[in-house]
Design a protein around this nucleic acid. Structure first.
Lengths: 224, 224
DNA sequence: GCCGCAAGTAAACAATCATTCAGGCAGGGC
DNA sequence: GCCCTGCCTGAATGATTGTTTACTTGCGGC
């Protein structure tokens, strides 16, 4: 459909899908994937504006001009890697919730576990996707923000449902509740794990996911 | 001679202290404060690397060269504004805890309230201090990180104390607790309020502070 | 009245950036 | 054999950057 869009399926992460592709197509995508991977690593480490096209391409063993055979601009490259990561995150979250049954407590726990797990495991990608959005120009940034809002709304819906069923009792401030604020608080918490979590930590990724799920359930006052 | 300053208010950290200074000294600092305020605003809006020295000084009604009469470099300017904000935050947190008595629950609530309140009220400063650290060079960034760690340790100590007194029961994962991870989760949550909270929100700053304090108390299993 | 100094200006500095362009070089279809 | 196309190189482009410099200017103390 969108034809020109080469980014259709997956990104630098999830290399296991690579094997399923036709060899010819895979060969053709190889430099593109190398560029993506190098861009992820360098953007994460040093930040988009100070990473030069030269840097990225040198890491791939190419010269700077070669970038423009695969991407229209440096900006498009950033959008490409952020958008694919973001889309995959949205998919993962929705899938986790969908497979967690009807109980809002189980849905919330599944959401947080999947979200945190992903932010621990793919922390480089998550870090870039969450920190470098600001450098995209107007239209591209709106695209990402829409996806973020969609994820937040999944969470708000869970809270809303749990409240309606009497299974959650989120904090009440002066007699009013602000589920959006609660959702943002939970998301901020989970998102920024990627800023400090390292494989050398005391807790494994799975354990982090469970810790955060437990904290989230407590925050919203989930009934035992 | 053209107009002296285009940007009216000299905000920056701790403006209340300004009045206490001798008038002569205050007058002497006026352009410095104007530069700081302009830098805060521009860094917050567009990010350190893309804001030029020309931009900052033009906002003060000066030319680029004048910056170097007050700061050694653009990097020092960034460090200056971040460090002063960070130091003030550290002071506010410690003061809040010190004035909250002995009960760990009151101490935790006071800490979170002060922290969130500050991040709502001075969101521009908080945003810059938390987002632009990465651009500082090695020695300067270590300075800020030390202060951050100090704040985190204040929080860890409160959790530790509450646990010892049997007033908190933080989540246990596989029979172990990681208070540092819990503290980081709470801090991430509170810090990033500055990324999305605006005066147009449904909750006031005070209400946000109470909401977050309530969530924190619940997260760590504070006994009623 | 004049000196000295803090603070501002305009211009120049060297470096670096994203992007473009002309050309080379492979290989598959004819 | 030949052209077309995809991918690459190496050099050039034009704009912009942080910082330095040489020169002015306003002003308090003597």
């Amino acid at each position: 459909m969108t034809g020109k869009r080469k980014t259709a399926a997956v990104t630098a992460p999830a290399p296991e899908r690579e094997a399923a592709r036709a060899p010819a197509e895979r060969e053709a995508r190889q430099p593109v994937e190398a560029i993506r991977a190098a861009a992820f690593a360098q953007f994460a480490e040093r930040g988009y504006p100070v990473v030069t096209v030269r840097d990225i391409m040198k890491a791939c063993g190419l010269t700077q001009g070669a970038l423009y055979n695969h991407f229209k601009s440096k900006d498009e490259l950033l959008h490409d890697i952020i958008a694919s990561t973001q889309a995959e995150l949205e998919r993962v979250c929705q899938q986790a919730v969908a497979g967690a049954g009807e109980d809002p407590r189980a849905r919330l726990a599944a959401f947080v576990r999947a979200y945190v797990m992903r932010h621990c495991r793919l922390r480089v990608e998550a870090l870039v996707a969450n920190r470098e959005i600001g450098w995209l120009d107007g239209e591209r940034v709106a695209d990402i923000r829409r996806s973020r809002r969609a994820i937040r709304d999944v969470l708000v819906d869970i809270l809303d449902d749990g409240l309606a069923k009497g299974l959650f009792s989120p904090p009440q401030i002066d007699g009013r509740r602000d589920l959006k604020a609660v959702a943002m608080a939970l998301l901020d918490q989970c998102t920024h794990v990627s800023m400090w979590y390292g494989p050398g930590g005391r807790l494994s990724e799975e354990q982090m996911a469970r810790l955060y799920a437990e904290m989230a359930l407590r925050s919203v006052g989930a009934k035992a």
